[in-house]
């Protein structure tokens, strides 16, 4: 057996080198802990803006109507096909996959923002 050294790519994947990655994670983690609340809020508000834009565009509703508890079907005039399309648009925008059973739980604007914030 030929010794290729500790960093040799044995099965194609680049080797993960603990010694280099650990400190980086540490720094990132530290920063995040320091302003955890702000960070979460920033993520939420960024997600909310992007979700709102999609909802306004797809359902043709006034932005002011898209509130936390606004139901896509009861308050924003969507039908069942609209909600399917909305979920697809969220998947596309955020690069995530929303399984069908999870999609069924997304009934309001707030549900969507919460689900996506947790998934990203």
């Amino acid at each position: 057996m030929v010794y290729l050294g500790p960093h040799a790519p044995i099965w194609g994947e680049p080797p993960r080198i603990r010694g280099i990655q650990e400190p980086r994670r540490g720094i990132k983690g530290k920063t995040r802990v320091a302003s955890a609340q702000n960070y979460e809020e920033r993520i939420m508000s960024d997600v909310a803006d992007r979700v709102k834009k999609i909802v306004v565009e797809h359902l043709g509703v006034d932005e002011a109507k898209v509130t936390e508890n606004a139901s896509f079907i009861d308050d924003l005039g969507a039908d069942s096909l609209d909600t399917v399309e909305l979920v697809m648009a969220f998947e596309e925008e955020f690069g995530i996959e929303i399984p069908d059973d999870a999609a069924e739980t997304i009934q309001t604007f707030g549900d969507a923002v919460k689900f996506i914030s947790e998934a990203t």
């Binding site: 096909l81 399917v84 399309e85 697809m88 596309e92 996959e97």
Partner: peptide, 10 residues
């Protein structure tokens, strides 16, 4: 196929 719109057929 997951990106095919629900409005495509109708």
């Amino acid at each position: 196929p997951r990106r095919v719109s629900p409005f495509f057929i109708p």
